[in-house]
Design a protein around this nucleic acid. Structure first.
Length: 270
DNA sequence: CATTTCAAGAAGAAGGCACA
DNA sequence: TGTGCCTTCTTCTTGAAATG
């Protein structure tokens, strides 16, 4: 059996069957290979490594590699664009150790969660995809060791903030429920139990977007859905999705999608 | 009705600093 | 290291008017 999660910036494969590929490389993607159970023979730059569950390997872009797994074994492969992975290092180039130790049970749990997330949604808009990618990146950040991660043995940057993450997750849920209403930074910061100053910083670190940009994108996504699925006027849709005036809606929509709402509707919602 | 433009004020973003 | 605050600059909001 093979399952794949593919997003614009990363792919995750779970392979639970006999499998073999030929030596290849990825132009601009990191690959993390995590044996889940059984055994796996991994060849990296003509050197073969026999891996067991939890012994993960990291391939940099341009690293030549291949692998073979036998019947009764399973592996998780995560491929991430270099630019996305650099987000882990706050924009600085990441440096990861070649050999890693990853809890296979946790990796499996995460994969179930990610795939469940995809199947449970009626539609995967860009915000949902962004959130999924962020979750995968956060998993990699927690599990992988590298020079940007405090030497590798100390707590990762994000892991000491589980409580904070829960508060920020509540903020995201609040935005999704109330994006069509006026939202104030102070209000969102209160939900996160943070000052407005720190909230803006931690929110951006968590989502990759500032609070206001996140709200704006949520509104635009909903407006796109309404444009594609309803016959409401553009003005009405703008007002229904939280924009205070048609002019604001047009400008935000054009900036986000490169076309006016009317053009978006004429082109069939693409 | 859809779209654009403008100006003034409000709010947000980001960097830097201080403190526990 | 996490957090709060200040300052400065940028971006957004609001309302009105105009055009097709």
């Amino acid at each position: 059996m093979q399952m794949t999660i593919a997003t614009p910036r990363m792919q995750v494969w779970r392979i639970d069957e006999k499998f073999e590929n030929t030596p290849h490389l990825h132009e601009d993607q990191f690959q993390v290979s995590i044996p889940l159970y059984g055994a796996c023979a991994f060849t990296h730059e003509n050197v073969t490594y026999d891996l067991t569950a939890g012994e993960a390997l990291v391939q940099y872009p341009q690293d030549r590699h291949s692998f073979t797994i036998e019947e009764g074994s399973g592996i998780l492969i995560v491929q991430v664009d270099r630019g996305s992975l650099n987000r882990i290092g706050a924009g600085a180039p990441v440096e990861l150790s070649f050999r890693q130790s990853v809890d296979p049970r946790q990796a499996l749990d995460h994969f179930r969660s990610w795939s469940g997330e995809m199947f449970s949604r009626d539609r995967l808009d860009t915000l949902a995809v962004d959130e999924l990618e962020t979750r995968i990146l956060r998993f990699l950040h927690r599990e992988l060791r590298g020079s940007h991660m405090n030497g590798g043995n100390e707590a990762p940057i994000w892991s000491g903030a589980e409580g904070q993450e829960r508060h920020l997750a509540r903020v995201l849920a609040h935005i999704r429920e109330h994006f069509a209403e006026p939202l104030r930074i102070d209000e969102l910061a209160a939900i996160a139990l943070q000052s407005r100053f720190h909230f803006i910083r931690s929110f951006k670190a968590f989502t990759g977007l500032s609070p206001y940009q996140y709200v704006l994108r949520t509104r635009i996504e909903d407006a796109k859905r309404r444009l594609a699925e309803t016959d409401s006027t553009v003005t009405d849709i703008g007002l229904e999705t939280g924009f205070s005036s048609p002019s604001q809606f047009y400008r935000a929509f054009f900036k986000a999608s490169g076309m006016t709402p009317e053009q978006f509707r004429v082109r069939g919602g693409r």
